[in-house]
């Protein structure tokens, strides 16, 4: 039993490392090849985890090879556009200026219901409002609405607003968040000074956010009774 547990720990670490190496794209929007690799990794890992009679390397070597090939293929696809088209395909326009391309729909084996469902999920109910509907290489459908169907933006109504940027965390659970401090153009010393002025120690802060105008918001840690 201890062997099974230890093998599981090793495989878990290897999978985390493999997915980390494969990159964030792997975890987000999967291309066909990436989906295949992810499924294969899951399957390969489970076999030596369950059966101690199978050498651990029989599961780890294929995972290493798959991740390495996937990374090399990604790099080659960046270099050669034709390879990218060959492996991932091209985006396909299925609605052009409100007109449905039935041939494209048939070729992609998509039904009108699939399209309508995606439209509804994006709060579009009339196909005539759609300028373009594009089936992306990862299978998702992107919609671009006609100008008169698009919601008005602040620029459209010419409202001037100052760009303060969104508030980002700069202290979380008593620890400085480097990337947040960098985004706001602040420094660790500035944050500590600010806290000192408010009579608050860094370790007492549960959350501290700031925006580009250096406006801060502090949530202190509750003192447990």
């Amino acid at each position: 039993m201890a062997i099974t547990a230890l093998r599981t720990v090793i495989i878990y670490i290897v999978i985390i490392a493999a997915l980390r190496l494969a990159g964030k794209r792997q975890l987000g929007e999967l291309q066909p090849g990436e989906l295949v690799v992810t499924l294969l990794i899951a399957d390969l890992a489970s076999v030596p985890m369950q059966d101690v009679g199978i050498p651990l390397l029989n599961g780890l070597v294929p995972i290493a090879v798959l991740v390495a090939l996937e990374l090399i293929l990604s790099a080659l696809m960046l270099k050669w556009r034709w390879l990218s088209r060959l492996v991932s395909g091209n985006p396909v326009v299925i609605v052009n200026d409100g007109v449905l391309d039935q041939k494209a729909l048939k070729r992609l084996r998509l039904t009108v219901e699939d399209l309508m469902e995606t439209m509804r999920q994006q709060e579009v109910f009339d196909i005539r409002d759609v300028q373009y509907a594009i089936v992306e290489t990862n299978g998702k459908i992107s919609l671009f609405l006609k100008p008169n169907a698009q919601a008005a933006t602040r620029a459209d109504v010419q409202t001037l607003i100052s760009d303060k940027g969104a508030p980002v965390p700069i202290v979380s659970d008593g620890k400085l968040i480097d990337w947040g401090i960098a985004v706001c153009g602040l420094s660790a010393n500035w944050v500590e000074d600010k806290l000192k002025k408010r009579g608050c120690a860094l370790s007492d802060v549960l959350l501290m956010t700031a925006d580009k105008s250096h406006k801060v918001y502090i949530v202190r840690r509750e003192v447990s009774s």
């Binding site: 090879v65 991740v67 390495a68 990374l71 090399i72």
Partner: peptide, 8 residues
């Protein structure tokens, strides 16, 4: 890519 080549 270097990591992948090292792995391979």
């Amino acid at each position: 890519v270097i990591a992948a080549l090292v792995l391979l």
